[in-house]
Design a binder for these strands. Sequence first.
DNA 1: ACAGGATCCTGGGGGC
DNA 2: TGCCCCCAGGATCCTG
Length: 294
Amino acid sequence: MPELPEVETVVRDLRPLVIGKRISAVRRTSTKALRRPWSDAWVARMVDRSVAGIARRGKWIVLDLGGPRLVIHLGMTGQLVVMPTESPLADHTHLVIDLAPGTDQLRFRDARRFGSVTLFDSAADAEAFFTEGDLGPEPFDYDPTVWRQRLSKTRRNLKATLLDQTLISGVGNIYADESLFEAKLHPETIAADLTPAQADRLLKAIVAVLTRAVDKRGSTIRNYVGGSGLAGGYQDEFRVYGREGQPCPRCETSIVAGRLAGRASHYCPACQKNSRSVRQSGSRKVSRQDHQTD
DNA sequence: ACAGGATCCTGGGGGC
DNA sequence: TGCCCCCAGGATCCTG
């Protein structure tokens, strides 16, 4: 479920609720396996530590325990919320962390269990995990030159490219579609065929869309809630995602939905022209030079 | 190198 | 009410 804006919202919500709190107990509240295996040996390493900070890296949440780092991925249906101890434990709650002083608990829930919770011994170990996973740069501080270079090296389409966390971290299905609309680029456009100007436009569009979404506390379609249990508001601002058959907010043309990179993809066929396929309709294949315009 | 499909799971919605 | 099928904010592995 959660992409960068949702994860960022969780982190911002949790920050005042967990920082400075001491972990007085840790309990696994289900025996079901998560995406990455949990180890009970981690409990002893967490108890009595205080939460020094909480941060986001791509779609990952990093809880700083003053040495060890608890690294959490929400997968599709994950929730990480602070709740009072007396509130009933919701279904599919996998981990409960007691916070002191007070009676609050940090709870991790995940119905589909595509998420994970992993303890690393140090900041360096957590960072090595991201490095080994080849996690791509953050959209907000992506060097445009590097971005253009990375795009120029792949013949994949833009939709698949934006979903690739090693190329850019944090973008998922919703914000890929919304960013491509913002940039007026067709999701099937080959990344390497973008002109430098188009590549710049795309990065700016991603940043603009993500910024607006963060401002609205992300998007809630089904399960997502922030760290305090509050839903998001950006789902009301979608311009293409989930709007198949509805009018394009720019030109009124019906939004089209197709399947790309294995995911539902929404776009405006009028605003988001695929220069490649348009040009291909006359000749057979198009040389790279043909794309220098636009 | 890359596309496409299957897979890991559960729940919700639509059609019948 | 129930059943069946399809779909879902992700990521990874396998095949062609």
